[in-house]
Design a protein around this nucleic acid. Structure first.
Length: 379
DNA sequence: TACATTTGACCTGG
DNA sequence: CCAGGTCAAATGTA
């Protein structure tokens, strides 16, 4: 930030955010008109007169325009943020050689080429975006392994945690070495309720899995159409540990997962969510129940499973409040009431960018069919 | 052979 | 010093 004052930057950012919010509101209006059934959100500000809901094609066109506008805002903001972040990012020297084992600190600086965002602190203070899901399974199930959320994870560690009865499993993206994907997750079985697994996701998937998974779901309906079931992997199939394979034997009994969202902080805004599959941000009312379909859901489920598992999506807004870094985009300066959606300009996906409407979903009642606002959020 | 998991050692921040 | 996170050699599996 040499030639661009911080004050100017913030000013510009605020303007962009303001414009983006306005575009979002416009999008809300359009959504309300096109889907009059979900009318909760529009309670306050019913606006301009043209309420002919029949013209769906023109609505689509308008929506597309809004999405493009939002996309532009997002890109501008992300450019702005990444511009600021680059200062820190490229200060640290990093050689890009592969693998001499454990030459300690010098080694670490290049081992995670995409971890340059937190180059100063390698291990603990991971500023990558973090969010938590709680998966509950039926009592009595023999559950070990890892939840397969559609990505290929590789376990790289397990550690007993002080005060916790169950060890915590550490997983990273399988494509970490090849593609430098920085996504990790931790799986921790709850002490209070052993049927609940708390999965903490961290970082974004920059690997091709993202495109494999999220490219198809450019729209909510597409996502729903393409993820009709839950694939369950049984421990007794000797491949319970191999998360790559997902037999569809139990597809019938697990036609869908029910996700219960709970707003942990009931005094604040709607819950902020990042969906692990597509990195869509999903926001819910403080307590809403929706159905969600996962592409894969394996390993933790036992053969005794007959019912449907419960998934508790808990909000982890800490990642935001602490200011997190998405890729090389520093989102630190975001203000809580402003929007915080960014998509990188270097998108490898062709997905359409739509923007979650964080300020309105707090009043939205979720439809029985889970609804994503697919956002090309991280990529 | 390639890839995943296990597990003890190591490292870092508090 | 300790707890949590990560590494990497050893081991397992297809």
């Amino acid at each position: 930030m040499e030639n661009f004052g911080e004050w100017d930057q913030n000013k510009l950012k605020n303007e962009l955010l303001k414009g983006m919010e306005l575009a979002k509101q416009l999008q809300i209006q359009l959504n309300v008109r096109s889907t009059p059934s979900s009318s909760m959100a529009a309670s306050s500000s019913s606006s301009s007169s043209s309420s002919s809901s029949s013209s769906s094609s023109s609505n689509d066109g308008c929506e597309l325009l809004v999405q493009k506008i939002l996309c532009s805002y997002e890109k501008a903001l992300s450019l702005l943020n990444s511009y600021g972040a680059q200062i820190n990012i490229y200060e640290s020297p990093s050689s890009f050689n592969g693998g001499s084992p454990r030459s300690e600190d010098s080694d670490r600086e290049f081992k995670d080429p995409f971890d340059i965002t937190n180059a100063n602190s390698f291990r603990k203070r991971n500023i990558l975006p973090t969010w938590t899901q709680k998966f509950q399974v039926s009592p009595g199930m023999a559950i070990e392994g890892s939840l397969d959320d559609g990505f290929a994870w590789r376990k790289y560690g397990q550690k007993g945690i002080l005060g916790a009865k169950h060890p915590r499993g550490y997983y990273r993206c399988t494509h970490r070495n090849l593609q430098g994907c920085q996504a990790t997750k931790q799986v921790q079985r709850s002490d209070d309720d052993p049927t609940i697994f708390e999965i903490t996701y961290r970082g974004k998937h920059s690997c091709s899995q993202v495109s494999n998974l999220s490219t198809p779901c450019t729209t909510t309906s597409e996502f729903q159409q393409q993820n009709q079931g839950v694939v369950v992997e049984l421990p007794d199939q000797k491949k319970a540990q191999n998360q790559q394979t997902s037999p569809d034997a139990l597809l019938d009994s697990w036609s869908s997962l029910r996700v219960i969202t709970q707003n942990l902080d009931t005094t604040h805004e709607p819950t902020l969510q990042f969906h692990p599959l597509c990195y869509d941000r999903v926001e819910f009312a403080s307590t809403s129940t929706v159905d969600v379909n996962f592409t894969e859901f394996s390993s933790f489920l036992s053969p005794t499973t007959s019912g449907s598992g419960l998934s508790y999506f808990s909000a982890s807004s800490s990642g935001l409040s602490e200011g997190f870094v998405v890729g090389n985009q520093n989102l630190n300066n975001l203000q809580p009431n402003n929007c915080e959606i960014f998509s990188s300009p270097t998108s490898a996906l062709n997905t359409q960018t739509t923007t979650a409407l964080d300020f309105s979903f707090g009043e939205l009642q979720m439809e029985p069919t889970f609804s994503f606002d697919n956002t090309d959020f991280f990529s």
